[in-house]
Design a protein around this nucleic acid. Structure first.
Lengths: 142, 142
DNA sequence: GACAATCTCTACTTACTTGATAGACTTTAT
DNA sequence: ATAAAGTCTATCAAGTAAGTAGAGATTGTC
């Protein structure tokens, strides 16, 4: 299961992707439109900002906007940012590899062998899906 | 990430799948061979027993054995049992469907649409992989 | 310059989950 | 009887999830 926070992040990004180019959306608006607790969303957007996905303008008429094309933001990227590694096992993570302490031999590990296929399948889909894909009005995909 | 507990459960089942037919393996042996904390493994095996995956014999020379063919125990089944729903969103779970509270329309939910494909890909692999597959000595699969 | 609208940052909270550990109890073979 | 198993329930420490709270910093407008 992905976290509620990741779900909110994706929905916020989708909302931003739907804004007019150049237009900044305000936290309160995004929160209302996507039914996200406002203070929680503040934190999430701040995270996304610190990680370089969005930019913000402060003060009156401030707001948030995407920092790169929605088509170039993959679900994988967002999930990694918010929930951490996408892989089902630490020893299969591309971005946060960690040996399993109790595993004597990685190449002989039966569980790892099986989950490698899962990880590949999962990533194939997640990498191929962008915020732009998800932001399309309805019907039709990719 | 799957839990440590699920990893232990899979490894224990793999170990049981490798036992001689009719032979019962003891907790202590499985724990040692697979480097699983013994008391923790007790709980896990008890769970697996209550869910009908394995059987046990008590008393001296007791132990555990699979209750059905290793080839008929899928990874999905074990994961569901130990970690709960396999789906990435509650509203995509086959076995524990739950509506997302903040979602006004499921059919219009962009996040759901995207993750449906992930769930399918994931399940396809997990359903197709059995304990018997994982228990094969090395090399070769399916 | 005052003020209000916004974003920013840090801390805190409550409940739950994870990964165990402990120990008393029951059953069975010898 | 006894020792070798599995069974059951409780407990625990650390971490995570999902928020909430509130003071602070910027910026546009009058």
């Amino acid at each position: 299961m992905i976290s509620q926070k990741a779900k909110y992040a994706l929905r916020a990004l989708i909302e931003l992707a739907r804004a007019e180019p150049g237009e900044a959306l305000q936290i309160a608006d995004i929160a209302e439109r996507q039914r996200i607790p406002r203070k929680f969303l503040e934190q999430i957007l701040l995270d996304l900002k610190h990680r370089g996905l969005v930019m913000s303008k402060r003060g009156a008429h401030g707001g948030y906007a995407l920092l790169k094309p929605a088509a170039s933001i993959s679900f994988t990227e967002v999930l990694r940012l918010i929930d951490g590694p996408v892989a089902p096992l630490p020893c299969l993570s591309q971005t946060a590899y960690r040996r399993c302490e109790d595993c004597p031999s990685e190449s002989a590990c039966e569980v790892r062998r099986a989950f490698a296929a899962v990880a590949d399948a999962e990533r194939a889909v997640l990498d191929a899906t962008s915020i732009a894909d998800a932001a399309r009005p309805v019907r039709r995909r990719r």
